[in-house]
Every structure is written in structure tokens, then in C-alpha cells.
Simulated assay, not measured.
Amino acid sequence: MKKYQAILFDLDGTLLDTLEDLTDSVNAILGKYGFPLRDREEIRKFLGNGSEQLMKAALPEGISETDFTKYLKEYQAYYKGHMEEKTAPYEGILPLLEELRKAGLKIGVVSNKFDLAVKGLCEKYFPGYIDGAAGEREAEGIRRKPAPDMIDTAAERLGVSTKDCLYVGDSEVDILTAKNAGMDCVSVTWGFRNEAFLREAGAAHLVHTPKELKNFILQ
């Protein structure tokens, strides 16, 4: 088994179960303007490419660019104020991070969620465990996943090479991100995509529990 220096995690669907708060926040905006609401399974399928793509998928077709920008900003503001109501780490995640820290591994989080939310959630749920967390910052010229930009930036901040990192995620976007960054990837099956979908998307390694992930990394 290859020895890694750092583990880079996706956030939503990998470390945190955020689906309920995301669904509620999207529906708060849809309901405010009289649009049809979305259920959890619809929102689950829309996730993985950031808040802009989430809202584009959730809103009806034909929305003007001006209105879309307004709805997106309102969604982000609402979610920022309600992102800790039903969200929680998946069972076994905190013990996993504890074991990785004890093993001397650096831990980073790279997410397509907007940057303020990523940092806020990591500070609340994983204090002392995360060496660096980064969210979407395309305005600064750092492309969102599956482009490798965020991975490259995270690895540089952790002081390691991408080839010495393992990327862990729950979606097809994560698989492609790791491929574009030239790094190993493990796909988890407890998140927003099921095992059959991940296999079809080309997952090289699949794990079903945080304990199985720990064994993959450390043994």
C-alpha cells in the first residue's frame, strides 16, 4: 500500500451529511418566489458542482440572468444562516480523522461549496482536525472541481505534492478531479451517489464505512 503524506477530502456527502439543510435552503428560496419545491432525492442528484449549478438545476427554466444572480445570492445568504441546523458528520468520521492525525497525516478539505460555508462548517464540526479548507473561489481564478486548481492549491498550502496525497470523495466530480490532478482516489458509498453509480463513473477504489477507509489508508 502506498504511503501518503496528506489526505484531501470532499466535504458534502463525504465528511458531512448536509443534504437536509441544503434541501431546506433551496426550497426556502423556491418557495419565496412561488416556484415548485424540490425533494431530497432531486437535490441529491443536483449536488457536486457548487451552489451556482445547484440553483441552476433547482430553478425552473427560463430564469433571466439578473434574476438568477439574485436568487443565488439569496440562497447563499440563507444557507449560511441555516447550514448547521440538521447537518452532522457521518457516523465514524470523527474517529477516522483522529486516527489519521495520530498517524501524522495532514488533512485538507476541498469543496465546490462556496468558500465561507466550507470554512465555517469545518471550524464548527472538525476543530483541530483540518489543516486547510478551501471552497469555491472562481472569482480569484481558481477553477472549481473537476479542474485540478483547488487540489493543487490545497496541496501547496499543506506543503506536499499531489502525488503524495490521496483524494476522498463521494461523486463522479471527485473521481474526475483526482484524475485531472494525477492523484489516487477513493470513493465512499455513504454519500450522495450509490455504489453502482460510482462504479459506472470509473471509481478505482470503493469503501463502505469510515473504518474501511481508515484501513485502506493506514494498512
Rank of each mutant, 00 (worst) to 15 (best):
L30F: 12
R193P: 05
V160S: 04
I43P: 00
E99Y: 05
Y90R: 10
D24V: 14
D24W: 15
Q76T: 12
L96S: 03
A147T: 04
C185S: 03
G128V: 12
Q76V: 14
M183L: 08
G135E: 12
K119G: 11
Q5I: 03
E65I: 11
K45G: 02
F35E: 06
E41S: 10
Y78A: 01
E123V: 08
L198K: 00
N194T: 11
G48E: 04
Y79N: 12
K45R: 10
S187D: 06
F9I: 00
F197C: 02
Y129I: 06
Y79T: 12
P60Q: 10
M183Q: 00
G128K: 13
W190S: 06
A6N: 03
K32T: 15
V188E: 02
L158C: 15
H82W: 01
A57I: 09
G135D: 13
T153S: 15
T18F: 08
G81D: 15
L158Q: 12
S25H: 13
I217F: 02
V109I: 13
A28K: 12
F126T: 06
L198E: 00
L121Q: 11
M55I: 06
I130N: 03
D39L: 10
F192G: 01
E61P: 08
G169N: 05
F197Y: 11
E172I: 04
T69N: 11
A77D: 15
E172H: 00
R143W: 07
L94M: 09
A155F: 03
S171Y: 07
F46H: 00
L206Q: 03
C165Y: 04
R44D: 06
I107Q: 10
K86P: 04
V207K: 01
D152H: 14
L97D: 03
H82S: 06
G62M: 10
S171N: 07
S64D: 13
P148Q: 08
R137Q: 14
M1K: 07
A204P: 12
F197A: 05
I107N: 08
I175S: 02
L166W: 02
L100Q: 02
G135M: 11
C122R: 06
K145V: 02
C165K: 01
R193K: 10
D12T: 01
L116G: 11
M150Q: 13
D17Q: 07
G202L: 03
Y167S: 01
T189Y: 02
A58G: 07
M1V: 04
N49T: 07
V188F: 03
V160I: 15
L96V: 02
M83Q: 11
V188R: 00
T18I: 09
L213E: 02
L59C: 15
L19C: 10
L30P: 09
F9P: 00
E85Q: 13
K211V: 09
G159V: 07
K3F: 01
K179R: 14
D21R: 08
G81A: 14
E85C: 10
L30S: 10
R137H: 11
A201E: 02
M83W: 06
D12F: 03
P127N: 08
P148L: 06
Q53S: 13
F35T: 04
G92E: 09
T18Q: 11
